[in-house]
Design a protein around this nucleic acid. Structure first.
Lengths: 255, 255
DNA sequence: TCCAGGAGTTCGACGATGCAGAACGCTTAA
DNA sequence: TTAAGCGTTCTGCATCGTCGAACTCCTGGA
């Protein structure tokens, strides 16, 4: 099963996490569901799930196993471990309030962007449901801003590893185009997303660096093309975001 | 190593999660640190950590391994899976805004209370750092409110499993006292915490149930004894919270 | 410059342990 | 009453996780 992995790894651990991911994907599953889904013997799935439950990583309700809140605990701890994350959260909230659009903060992990905070202007649409979601780094404003802060070697690594898949007809899929785009971002200080990720959506992103110039993450604000145009899109928003990123960097430096 | 666990479980998985928990506890560790911490051979720790990194559950920076954001992803997904959680979050925010005190929503897992949302009135102190934290269910307002909604058998199970450890001199450590306290909560509709968890802190908790009467979680608001007294503590707050819980239950029922 | 110490990595051999499959009991539906 | 489906338990086999040794790389001190 799934033997595309290198040798020399702990196979049992792979099946353990395969099971957890199956539970996430199925939104909870019974023993035999999991077993057939992964091609395991029923007894094996049973043993794994029982162990996961004893370790308190999985809860069982009426025979249906689901991931437990311990993942949330570990996730929150890794998120808040760095004080800078709290500062970034404030800025995300501020941006959402000022622009009344959707704003988010992402960091890079394994060559992809990961949503760390997100907020929206209107209270009603307020949802955190995509926190932790991984997005292709080359097709989002925040992702490109982040890429621009990385070293050339790291950029090459990421492109080699993840490729440049097209998400819409506007996605940049050519490496040299992307590189010159990144050059432009470094000059301007901010990045633009022109429906490269989703048709009908534009966005502006700004990188955020630590005091010593090492990359930290990126802020972005996104909205519909009919609102994101003209002076707002070309001047007001970029200036607001550059200012916000600058404040954030100063806050980080002196905290 | 650590052989107090039952036979018939997947031992390798236990060491895998032991390693993850060690990384959480140490806030990142090197291979040999983890190995000596858990009494493993260096090569074993190496193999596990390499596997965890390949599975993208752990990131490595300059030889130091840390839990990755995938835990956050799984945690957020389990939290937001149930739509009711979003509704609960709104109420936590509302309570924090109205009372200008700390408010939280907890659910029960493995016989303990788990913070699912938390908010505080003043923006400055706004921190989510304790999300996911597990608390003794008998020594908190929300915990007792939650306990009061459970079946007698489940209550017995929890007490047998977790015991009633004293956290302060006011903690209820006697089972029959706790049971009559729960009876009172069922009558009144809300619970009170009189410095049972932390000296100097009082709190009020209300249970939240699904439309069919099954337990969902509990809301609570906590504050310092010098503010939590008199009419506020005896009337205003309880009424506010009972109303809020009632609204929440209605929202849940018709969503 | 050389050596010593510590860290990460690789390798091989042993035996613990994870795995599949069968068998059993329970519940549900026909 | 029976059959199907599910969870649970057990047992034997061979896989695979474990340890320890050996090697390299890096760093700091003499």
């Amino acid at each position: 099963m799934a033997s595309e992995h290198e040798r020399g790894r702990v196979k049992t651990m792979e099946t353990a996490f395969d099971i957890i991911e199956t539970l996430v994907a199925l939104d909870g599953g019974r023993i035999s569901e999991v077993a057939s889904e992964l091609g395991l013997a029923k007894s094996t799935a049973h043993r794994h799930l029982t162990t996961l439950e004893e370790l308190e990583y999985v809860v069982v309700d009426d025979g249906v196993y689901r991931p437990g809140l311990r993942f949330l605990q570990i996730g929150e701890q890794t998120r808040t471990r760095q004080e800078a994350y709290e500062l970034a959260k404030e800025k995300v909230t501020d941006l959402a309030a000022e622009t009344e659009e959707r704003s988010q903060f992402i960091v890079e992990e394994y060559g992809r962007g990961v949503y760390v905070f997100r907020d929206t202007g209107q209270r009603a649409v307020h949802t955190d449901s995509e926190i932790g979601k991984r997005i292709p780094i080359h097709a989002t404003a925040a992702g490109k801003a982040l890429l621009a802060t990385l070293s050339d070697e790291r950029i090459t690594e990421i492109i080699d590893h993840r490729g440049l898949p097209a998400l819409t007809e506007h996605t940049i899929t050519d490496e040299s185009t992307l590189r010159s785009e990144l050059e432009g971002i470094r000059d301007r200080g901010y990045s633009i997303n022109q429906q490269e990720n989703t048709i009908g959506l534009r966005a502006i992103g700004v990188p955020v660096e630590h005091g010593d110039g090492t990359p930290f993450g990126a802020l972005s604000v996104s909205g519909p093309t009919h609102r994101f145009q003209g002076t707002l899109f070309e001047e007001t928003l970029p200036n607001l975001m550059l200012g916000t990123a600058n404040e954030l960097e100063l806050n980080i430096q002196y905290s």
